[in-house]
């Protein structure tokens, strides 16, 4: 449970040495520092990256690969500063995020209601299920050629692809979520006087939330990847375009920078929007086990 992590730091009673037999004061201090660190959100969120970056740095410094193919963190940071200053990165980032926002916005607006309609009405479901599976199988990128013919190298084309990637996994997760709602809960609500509409809003909607939240997460992840792929192919601006274009002119540091930016943005989205939402709902209600729970 999330609130467990907020419990106050256990303090050593005054006057007693918290020393375990055999442990030197240095070890004790190190342990204390470690305990203190693991309670900081920043450390918990960023700490795991320290060894990754260290390894990256080490490999770059040792010169295992040619510098034309593999650059270290300092080069990437330098490139970041440079592109920020020139205003290229902010511009590309804005483009990418705008496309993502459109894609995700339309994707959710279409996928969620359609998912619930398919889930709630058996007849609609029987009709749409094969179609759903068929179109889910046609990979999103496979639509790009025809989409470019239809919409040109435009925001519409990229949005279409993102919406497409998001809608199908989202619909499938909504259907799974609605099926997961225990029959007993529906019955309980009905015998407490809830009509069909109330049952939908009071029981089915929240009951399906764990699966739907998972679907939103998956959908967003897919959409994010589709965006980069679409930018590489449609290629007029954006982070994906930057990386592909940099490769063309042989500027590896921009490729590395692009990768880092993509990862960081996704992580930030997860840490700032998705995870808190899940903590406040399904984890609070005890419907899914929290990642940080004790038991």
């Amino acid at each position: 449970m999330a609130s467990d992590t907020a419990e106050p730091v256990r303090r050593t009673p005054a006057g007693r040495t918290p020393r375990k037999s055999g442990a030197s004061p240095g070890v004790v201090r190190a342990r204390k520092v470690w305990l203190w660190l693991t309670r900081r959100a920043a450390f918990r969120n960023l700490g795991p990256f320290v060894p990754v970056i260290a390894l990256w740095w080490l490999v770059a410094e040792m010169g295992v690969f040619d510098e034309a193919f593999f650059v270290g963190p300092p080069r990437v940071v330098e490139e970041f500063g440079d592109l920020m200053e020139k205003g290229i990165l902010p511009g590309y980032l804005t483009d990418s995020l705008t496309r993502l926002a459109y894609g995700v916005g339309f994707g959710l607006a279409i996928g969620l209601p359609m998912g619930f309609v398919v889930a709630m009405f058996a007849k609609v479901r029987r009709f749409f299920w094969p179609i759903l599976l068929f179109f889910q199988a046609v990979a999103d990128i496979a639509w790009l050629p025809i989409v470019i013919v239809w919409f040109g190298f435009s925001l519409t084309a990229v949005t279409f692809v993102i919406v497409y990637t998001i809608v199908f996994p989202l619909m499938l997760s909504v259907v799974a979520g609605v099926e997961q709602v225990p029959r007993e809960l529906l019955r309980a609500a009905r015998s407490l006087g809830a009509g069909r509409t109330r049952v939908f809003f009071e029981v089915i909607l929240p009951g399906a939330l764990p699966s739907v939240a998972g679907g939103v997460r998956t959908g967003l992840g897919y959409g994010w990847r589709a965006l980069v792929a679409a930018e590489i192919i449609v290629g007029t601006s954006g982070v994906g375009f930057m990386m592909f274009d940099a490769r063309r002119v042989g500027d590896i540091s921009q490729v590395f920078l692009g990768m880092a930016v993509l990862g960081i943005l996704w992580y930030a989205l997860d840490a700032m929007v998705l995870a808190p939402f899940e903590r406040a709902t399904v984890e609070r209600w005890g419907m899914v086990r929290s990642l940080e729970a004790d038991g």
Partner: peptide
């Protein structure tokens, strides 16, 4: 005919609304 609030049910599985 059908469930209604005149017949309240206590379930073995409790069937409480977790949210």
């Amino acid at each position: 005919s059908g469930p209604g609030p005149d017949r309240g049910v206590v379930f073995q599985s409790h069937a409480l609304f977790p949210w």
